[in-house]
Design a protein around this nucleic acid. Sequence first.
DNA 1: TGAATATTGATAATGGTTTCCATTAACAGG
DNA 2: CCTGTTAATGGAAACCATTATCAATATTCA
Lengths: 151, 151
Amino acid sequence: MKGPWWQQRLCDYGFRLTNPRAMIIGILRNTEKHLSAEEIYIDAVKINPSIGLTTIYRTLDLFTQIGVVQKFDFGDGRARYELTNNPLKKDHHHHLVCVKCKTIIDYTDFVHEELELMNKTEKALSRKYRFNIYHHTVHFYGICSQCQREG
Amino acid sequence: MKGPWWQQRLCDYGFRLTNPRAMIIGILRNTEKHLSAEEIYIDAVKINPSIGLTTIYRTLDLFTQIGVVQKFDFGDGRARYELTNNPLKKDHHHHLVCVKCKTIIDYTDFVHEELELMNKTEKALSRKYRFNIYHHTVHFYGICSQCQREG
DNA sequence: TGAATATTGATAATGGTTTCCATTAACAGG
DNA sequence: CCTGTTAATGGAAACCATTATCAATATTCA
């Protein structure tokens, strides 16, 4: 009766539970990385060779809309996706991005303090600008040690 | 001898001062908005009809590299650019984005506090992950009041 | 001024993402 | 269980922002 939260969420919004959808959740649950649509597709084909790339995009878009996944742009020309509640991942984290090799580090240092301030800010912005805010991103950009060495 | 800071910057890096470059700076200086390459192109053509879109992209990329402009992705499928030192704009600000109509608000509320924390975090991340960090972004995403009304 | 070379602009190519549409699968009611 | 209704899928083609190519042009420095 009661499935995982994302199934519940699909149901609540009147969407159907399908194999591709379950599979994509499974793939995202099993990685700590920020996969692109194509990377997910590559994994998905190993499980079900007849799946289409279109379905991956559509599904990720749907999941993003209903808050099951979060879509990011780290500046490498493709969108990347992360499960909102990924058991493998740090609970709440922000991102540190190498603009050269595109490595992404999920950091939690100071995130507690950050969150406190972000929540306060979110409340103030909501009120002042009458926005219905539902998420935020904090990205630091720089050059990782590896890329620094390589000039 | 001593031009504006961006000319100095170009010079320092061994790049030449050209009309298209000056024009693009001029366009960015005259707006508070976050223009896309094409929007800049449209303005540029009014001034010099023979300018090419390619030049806009190349120039924006160059300016981004040397820190004269900052490139953003707000999720509407195109990059948007902002002059690093825009006299028309708030000195340091973060962004509040409507995911529906793509309106972008530059807010400064709490930015002072945010910056303090961001600087502290930046230092800690730099040390811990040996990153050479040179900028950050803070984006809040939500639905603006207008879009809320329109359902 | 003129040589050396960085920059430009038109065109074509690239590549991630969407659209279209005929086929298939999910699910509610019988 | 079947079965009809309708949402979801997948393959191909279209889209569209951004890049690469390359001959023509503009800038800089001696």
